[in-house]
């Protein structure tokens, strides 16, 4: 048995040898990958000419202001808003959900449905394909009439398609998100003509994924390789996918920092519309203005890093965040700030 350090060093050496003096730019689309990369100092093990950037991999960060404003309006009208922790402190156009006093943090959608047994409750459903099936399964269990969802789920492959078609981030390859992929499998990525590797989240998983990815880039191949086979099967989680398909339709959706991305959002099917908060409360979504000087938009498209933002660590801090990337544990600004990067 080799020690982890020894394996990490071996992988780092292989990456250096493979990359040589080429300039390579790779994107990952997962806050959990960024957290692992920063926490374990993985960038320091990579050659300087290998640039690994983060894209739109933070569900809290890409949730548009319009949807946060809608939840705040409902909270002000007395509805209990339930959601996952990080979203509560994201600034809307006028304060945050936390400031309404009507928002509750839940650990799972099933807890939100329990709360609805006692009070009018809206679950703000955020998250990518990893999370959307949990919402689908809660809906299929016929929660109480008091329960509805504001569906802010988003899908990763349509965002990747948009990024590749736009081409502005000039990517040589993609490190694909392991847990989104446990649900969707390998197939949805096969349409994209770039090198791609699905990677797990232990430091060695990330290094190994990067090693496979730079090999593909250098050898001029473009396929989808799975470096996380203990959790990702070719067809994904068929049961979870079926629940998602039974409950939701794919619709065009706005992401913060992006224009509308075709078929990148989810909406409850007609037979479940009693649980659709937008219909139930007649919500009209209105896009809010981005915070002045905040560069989250560019960050989410892989065009900037936190240290490019003049507000980073000065006016914008985790205790007084200006943009969502400084709020979420998966936001690049918060991850970098907490790690002491300035």
């Amino acid at each position: 048995m080799q020690s982890s350090q020894k394996i990490a060093r071996a992988l780092s050496n292989k990456i250096h040898d493979t990359v040589g003096d080429r300039e390579i730019k790779l994107m990952h689309v997962c806050g959990t990958h960024e957290a692992a990369i920063v926490k374990h100092g993985i960038r320091a093990l990579l050659p300087e000419n290998l640039n690994v950037i983060m894209g739109p991999g933070c569900p809290v960060c890409i949730t548009p202001k319009s949807e946060i404003d809608a939840a705040m309006k409902l909270a002000e009208e007395g509805v209990t808003i339930t959601t996952f922790g990080d979203l509560l402190r994201v600034p809307g156009s006028n304060g945050s959900l936390a400031s309404t006093g009507k928002a509750k943090i839940v650990q799972s959608v099933s807890r939100a449905a329990e709360i609805a047994e006692h009070e009018e409750t809206v679950f703000m459903a955020i998250g990518f394909e990893t999370t959307a099936p949990t919402t689908a399964s809660a809906i299929l269990r016929h929660p109480p009439d008091n329960f509805s969802i504001l569906c802010s789920h988003r899908l990763i492959p349509p965002a990747i398609k948009w990024l590749l078609e736009r081409g502005e981030a000039k990517l040589n390859g993609l490190l694909l998100p392991g847990h989104v992929s446990t649900i969707i499998g390998v197939r949805p990525y096969e349409a994209f003509p770039v090198p791609q590797v699905i990677a797990g989240f232990e430091p060695l998983d990330v290094l190994y994924g990067l090693h496979m990815l730079v090999k593909q880039v250098v050898e001029g191949r473009a396929t989808v390789e799975n470096a996380y086979p203990r959790a990702v099967r070719y067809d994904g989680n068929v049961k979870a996918l079926k629940m998602m398909n039974d409950v939701f339709n794919q619709v065009d959706a706005v992401w913060r920092g992006f224009p509308t991305i075709s078929k990148s959002g989810l909406m409850l099917k007609d037979e479940f519309q009693q649980y659709d908060a937008v219909k139930k409360y007649g919500i009209r979504l209105k896009e809010g203005k981005p915070a002045k000087g905040c560069r989250c938009d560019e960050l989410l498209r892989g065009l900037a890093t936190p240290t490019d933002c003049p507000l980073f660590g000065k006016k914008c801090l985790p205790t007084s965040p200006i943009g969502p990337c400084m709020v979420s544990r998966e936001g690049m600004c918060k991850i970098w700030f907490d790690a002491g990067i300035r």
Binding site: L11, P133, D205, P229, R233
Partner: peptide, 26 residues
């Protein structure tokens, strides 16, 4: 993930990955 099991872990694949890592280091 958020209170739900989202996938089973394949123990054989997990062992295979560890074997592969060791081989790489050697």
């Amino acid at each position: 993930h958020v209170g739900y099991a989202i996938q089973t872990i394949d123990e054989e694949e997990a062992k295979e990955t560890i074997r592969l890592f060791n081989e790489l280091a050697e």
